[in-house]
Design a binder for these strands. Sequence first.
DNA 1: GTCCGTCTGGGACAGTTGACCCACATCGCC
DNA 2: GGCGATGTGGGTCAACTGTCCCAGACGGAC
Lengths: 198, 198
Amino acid sequence: MSRIPATERRAALAHAALAVIARDGLAAATTRAIVAEAGMALASFHYAVPSRDELLRDVVELVVAEEGSAALAPLLARAGSIHEATVLAMTAYLELVKRDPGHEQAMFELTQYALRTPGLDDLPAEQYARYHALAIELLDAAGGPWRVPTADLARMLVSFTDGLTLAWLADRDDAAAARTIELAAAAIASFAEQKVDA
Amino acid sequence: MSRIPATERRAALAHAALAVIARDGLAAATTRAIVAEAGMALASFHYAVPSRDELLRDVVELVVAEEGSAALAPLLARAGSIHEATVLAMTAYLELVKRDPGHEQAMFELTQYALRTPGLDDLPAEQYARYHALAIELLDAAGGPWRVPTADLARMLVSFTDGLTLAWLADRDDAAAARTIELAAAAIASFAEQKVDA
DNA sequence: GTCCGTCTGGGACAGTTGACCCACATCGCC
DNA sequence: GGCGATGTGGGTCAACTGTCCCAGACGGAC
């Protein structure tokens, strides 16, 4: 094993941990499983990271940063109507989930774990603040102005996406998920300013 | 310890397990913690239940049955408009979550665990089928007929409730949750038949 | 009152876990 | 070319886990 600075190892361990969690679940993400995934010796773990929980904190931050900006931002540009844009964006997101369900499930597991763990219990609030901020960006890009505060609509969009994912993970019903997206998009589009017809 | 038939012990263990999971999380629900909560000897565990996973299956079924029918059904009767009824129902549900957040989080943890565990991975689909069926009942009771299939709307309602819960568990923002409910209720009410104005 | 199946309690087991320690290799710098 | 800081590897530790075993206590049927 070549010599690698501790900071790099720490990042590599976070990536390895995420891979293990996505594949086998959070419970299987033991220090041994993580270093095996990273191809390191067990001792490197506690040399690079004070504790397992500390590494999981890194993992959550990694997931939020990566998942958030990289995956969702570019989806909303084209498309004519707001309804269409919303459907496209949510469908693209669901495709992402379908392609790697474990990865998405890993996020939920990490959030639940963080909520239960002293010292990590501040993370979920941060995590969802990031999501909500991202949703605001998306809604702004999608059209607007909106008849209701964009922040409120953003929170609804995030809630909706989470619920959609959870339900699909549970029953893997592609068709039902698509119909739900259609409905949700219609609901969101109905809050657009210009759509008020009465 | 008085003599108790195995079937009763099994039920008592399931309740104890749920209590432990709600309080300390799924990871803390060891066989020892569960029997301690139930006030039993460790040996009683494997006398009453073949394995820990088998008990967790009981717990999921317990949660689905109890949570589902008992908590949500009676909430929707009164109220004038569909919008108002929806707000009332969702607010009541959120109150339930606030009163015992651990209980609600336990459900998510159990679902995630079941998805990862061979032999339990059929449970989440069943669990969500129950939720969806319950939501259909609620929507039927709330008013209707609806402009879209009730089943689709039900799935949206469940997704929405899950997402709402998840977000609130993460940031505990009561006011934001209330505003999200308002929006969601408006969205759902807009799918009511008589509300078509155009 | 005897007996047999049901239930109980304490103890034990092997396996796994997070954390740690210390002797050795390697690197950049003087 | 030596030297101190930085990284590595193997082995080890106590704690905890799910599961099991067995001797005994209790209950009701005869």
